[in-house]
Write a protein that binds this DNA or RNA. Structure first.
Lengths: 153, 153
DNA sequence: TTCCTATCTGCGACATATCGCAAGAAGCAG
DNA sequence: CTGCTTCTTGCGATATGTCGCAGATAGGAA
């Protein structure tokens, strides 16, 4: 029984083939995978998961996300991406320019929870934030060729 | 020329029929509308927008969101909802229990921006956060009948 | 191990969302 | 107002994501 299997059981979920295989794919491919990519990996690397239906991949991801084992990045227009969450609670900085996704932890997320609780009595746990903007390198590049060419940003 | 039309032009966008009509629908129907609901309103209230294609509604929303005039709530599994953003930068507290959506402003969002800028050199503007959790009334109801019946959040 | 029940899966239908392209409109220059 | 360029639209095809149901499976009880 692999580490991912244990994580699944410990979350109170049944360990089923789709869940186990999806978890392994995510765990062994650090990065942010689309459902299509996950299915390709399954086909190539996990013969035992040959017949897994697309809907089962989605449901497995939903279950794993609910258990906090996986984070979903539901970007603006782009396809949703999924990632194994070993660190339990990291966040994403997505550069609109170069598309790079950085993973960070943010103390301010805690203050967010506290403020919401204090001012609105709303109990929340901020598991994952995806913040879009411009990363430092791209900012530099910008500033150099910047001539205020538009405003549509 | 309506107020929404002006907002569109001032954002540097062309004022087109789909954009104008979608903006008016959102502006005149406070709340969080799905694309389907938006289309119904168009059909019923804006004859001039009779032939607007579904894809054009999506593209209009995309443009308006990019301009900061509209916020999109991309909930976990539920269908995406859209809202006219007069206040420019409010946030949502979504109760997983009763489904209620509260709109609030959050000072902590500013600290989030500052932390990201300071620690990662990443420039971001937090326009909209959708935080899921449990609202105060539902929390109360919970506590009363709570017998720790599960763990599946 | 065998049986039992709640839960999950695969399938296929459906809903939601995106995209490429040719035709059309917006907005600017003259 | 007219003509021109660029951006946008509508259409239809396709991709992404969800759902209901009958049959299969996990995991606990005996």
């Amino acid at each position: 029984m692999s580490e991912t299997d244990r994580a699944i059981r410990e979350s109170g979920l049944r360990r089923t083939v789709p869940r186990a295989v999806v978890a392994r794919v995510l765990e062994s491919h650090p990065g942010h995978l689309t459902v299509g990519e996950i299915q390709e990996h399954i086909t190539r690397e996990y013969p035992e998961g040959a017949g897994i239906a697309r809907s089962s991949v989605y449901r497995a991801l939903e279950a794993l996300e609910g258990a906090g084992l996986v984070v979903a990045v539901r970007g603006g227009q782009e396809e949703t991406r999924f990632e194994w969450d070993g660190d339990h609670g990291h966040h994403h900085l997505i550069c609109d320019d170069c598309g790079h996704i950085a993973e960070v932890s943010l103390d301010a997320a805690r203050s967010l929870e506290r403020e919401v609780q204090r001012t609105h009595g709303f109990r929340t746990r901020v598991r994952h934030l995806a913040l879009r903007g411009t990363c430092a390198p791209c900012r530099g590049a910008h500033d150099q060729r910047l001539q205020h060419q538009g405003g549509a940003a």
